[in-house]
Each structure stands twice: as C-alpha cells, then as structure tokens.
Computed example of a mutant assay.
Amino acid sequence: MRVAFVSNVIHPYITGGAQKRIHEIGTRLADNGHDITIYGRHFWDGPKEITHEGMTLRAVSPEHELYTGSDGERSIMEALKFAKDVVIPLRRRLDEHDVVVASVFPYFPVLAAQLSTLGKETPIVTTWHEVWRSYWEEYLGALATFGKIVEGLTARVPQYPIAVSDLTADRLRKLGAERTKVRTVPNGIDYASIQETPPADHGFDVLFAGRLISDKQVDILLNAFDRGAPADATLGIVGDGPKRDALEMQAQALDSSHQITFLGFLDEYEEVLKQMRAADVFVSPSTREGFGITAVEAMAAGCTVIGADHPDSAVDEVVDNAGFLANPTAEDVAPVLERALRGKQPSTEPQTRAKEFDWDRVAESALEAYTAAVTRDW
C-alpha cells in the first residue's frame, strides 16, 4: 500500500506523541514493503526530500516556531501556513498514494488534505488524539469560539476517523462524526526496547515525566508526595515547560524539598526510559489525556502507575486493572501513593498489560484501518 502521512512536524527532528506515532507505524509498514511518504516542515538538514528509515520525508514548508505565548500554546499562524503550503504539493503527487493519513491537531492540515483530494477518490484517514470541546475556553480564552468551530468543522468533513482511545472516539461521535464508524487504534510502545533498557544509575522511588503545564497537575503530585511519602523516598520530575519555575518554588517550600529533584528535559528518550526502569512508582495526576502514553511506558518498565480518575482522561482505559486511579487532589493521591510505595500491587501485572500496546500490534491495526478506507469497507 502507498500511504501519505500529513504532519507539520516529523519525528525524530521534533519530538512529540503524534509524530512519534506516525514514525513508529510508518517505519514498520515500510519494513513490510509498503511505500510511506510524510509531508511536513523542513526541520532536518539537507535537501527537502530525503529517505529516513525506509520512508520518504517530503518538506513542503520551511522550518517554523511551533509555540507562542508565555504558556506555550501552539501557534495558529504556523498551522495555517503549513496547511496553505501542503495543498498543492500533495495534490500534484496524489496519484502516488492510495490513502492520505492526516494527524488532526492542529486541524488545518486536515482541511488542507480535503482540498488536495477534491474530485479525487483517494480516501482521507484522520487520527484524532483528543477532542477538546470545553477545553477551548481555557486554551484560547476569548478566541475559544474560533477553536470550537474549527474542531467541529474538521469532525464533519468526509473522512475515515481513527481515535487513539474510546474516550476520544465517543467525544468525536458527539461532535458530529456519527455519520461514519470511528475506529479505535491506540498509541503504542516499543515493548522489547523498554525491557532491554538498563535502569538509571541514580533513579528515584517516584517519577513523573511530561510537559510542565497546568493540565499535568504536577503541583498536586508535589503536595501528595509531601503528605504520603516516607522520609527516605525520593521524587524525580522529568520535563520542562512554562510551569517549571512555579513548581520548583512550590517544592522548595515543602518539608520534603530535599527529597525532590527536577531533572529538566532529557534530550535522549532512552534517558527517560532509564528513569522509568529505576523507579518503583510512576504518578501522573494529569486531568487531560487523550491516551496516556507515559503510563504505558511506565507499566512496561515495571512501575506501579497512579493516574487521575477524571472524565477528561483516557488513562483509566489504558491502565485498566494494571495500576491505580485517584481523584486529582493531593488528599486522594497521597494515600494511594503511600500504599504503592509500601508494595501494594494492582490485580493485573503492569508489564502484561503494557505488552498489549506494542507498536507491532498497533501498526497491524492501523494497516487494517487504512486498507478498509481504500476498499471502502470501513
């Protein structure tokens, strides 16, 4: 099969969950003889078109800053410019592809892919990582209505939609995609690679890994750790973001401040895995997770995972019975953390659950979905 992915950012030149998903699925399909092309921005050195791990990377737009504002919001202008730039190049090469797979966020590339395929029979498969709905008020403030309109419009254009979780699939149907079936194809992990990663020489009993933004609720974790962790336990915070300074100030004021370390952003993904392999408990009180990939990675690494029990988070369906959930408050997370540090185990072995999300399995499911779109047997 000849698959064209449309994504303004491309792994490994820009890190992130959506582009890593494309990379992992794309490389596996390429290894199995499928023709894979990714249309994106020119974030790599050298010519605009290169071959990388068996895939063709085709730059249709120059490198551009992705984030803007003090809170690190994604740039609307960047998304619009990329959408504008991809329409004609994709249209000109459309006959080279059997299916176009567009990563939904930041929405405009999906609409651009629709323009590229007007009058053609090439199907468009969309990958929905989240459906934001009311979150637009928090993200865009006065411009929230604009975000809601674009999200709703994107959901209603002709497409074959894939959601990464049942939570997102249900929300997508309510948004207006009920006219066609929504398939769930989860995100994944390289299970064998995680198993082979050695633990960090200097690890922590409790670990968090993620972007330091409000939704991740790291402030709750800090307070819960201060309440529930024994005096000899340690907490490592991996990641960076606009809330880092405030979180470090909060940590310094805690009685357990000497037990808490901020590691910052780790350039190498393997270094994050090493920390997970060394940790006993992984905690993410995040209240907005369209999937929850760090929870799966932590389970594969052998951690006991504690996630947030929240209607905007899909972590509960990802972790299932292989971890614990708590209301996202310090009062509720603290006793769960305390019990986990004392050795309480979930009813399902975490690594057994994590293996269900191996990228090999995910790539097979994705290929089935792409084939169904091409044959109109969705």
Rank of each mutant, 00 (worst) to 15 (best):
L221Q: 08
A369S: 11
K48G: 13
E137T: 14
E65C: 01
G176M: 12
K355N: 07
P335F: 01
R342E: 03
R93A: 13
W132A: 12
A229T: 12
H11I: 09
V218K: 11
M249Q: 14
F324I: 13
Y139Q: 10
T154C: 10
P106V: 03
N32H: 09
F208C: 08
Q217R: 15
A308H: 10
E24T: 03
F324S: 02
R339W: 00
R277A: 10
D320K: 15
A192P: 04
T329D: 02
S70Q: 13
V336W: 00
I36P: 02
S214P: 05
A279F: 07
L111Y: 05
A373M: 11
L143N: 13
Q252A: 15
T127Y: 09
E130I: 14
A251R: 08
G141C: 10
G141P: 06
P12H: 10
D358F: 07
V333E: 00
K243N: 04
R353T: 07
R244H: 05
R58L: 02
V272M: 06
A30E: 01
D98V: 12
T122Q: 12
T294D: 07
E130F: 15
A246S: 15
R173A: 02
W136D: 05
A278H: 02
T375Y: 00
G147F: 04
L235I: 11
V110E: 05
L167I: 13
K174H: 02
E297S: 08
D226E: 05
D98F: 09
A233Y: 01
F43T: 14
F43R: 12
H23N: 03
R28S: 04
E271Y: 09
L212I: 09
V283E: 05
I189P: 11
A278Y: 06
K148V: 01
P89D: 02
G26I: 08
D320H: 13
R288P: 00
V238I: 15
R361I: 11
P230D: 07
L29A: 01
T329K: 06
V104P: 03
G40I: 05
L153Y: 11
A326R: 08
F105L: 09
G188T: 11
M1H: 10
I189T: 12
P89T: 09
A340F: 00
D166L: 12
S256G: 03
P12R: 10
F108P: 04
H34W: 07
A169H: 11
R21H: 14
D320I: 09
G54Q: 04
V182A: 07
E65Q: 15
D267I: 13
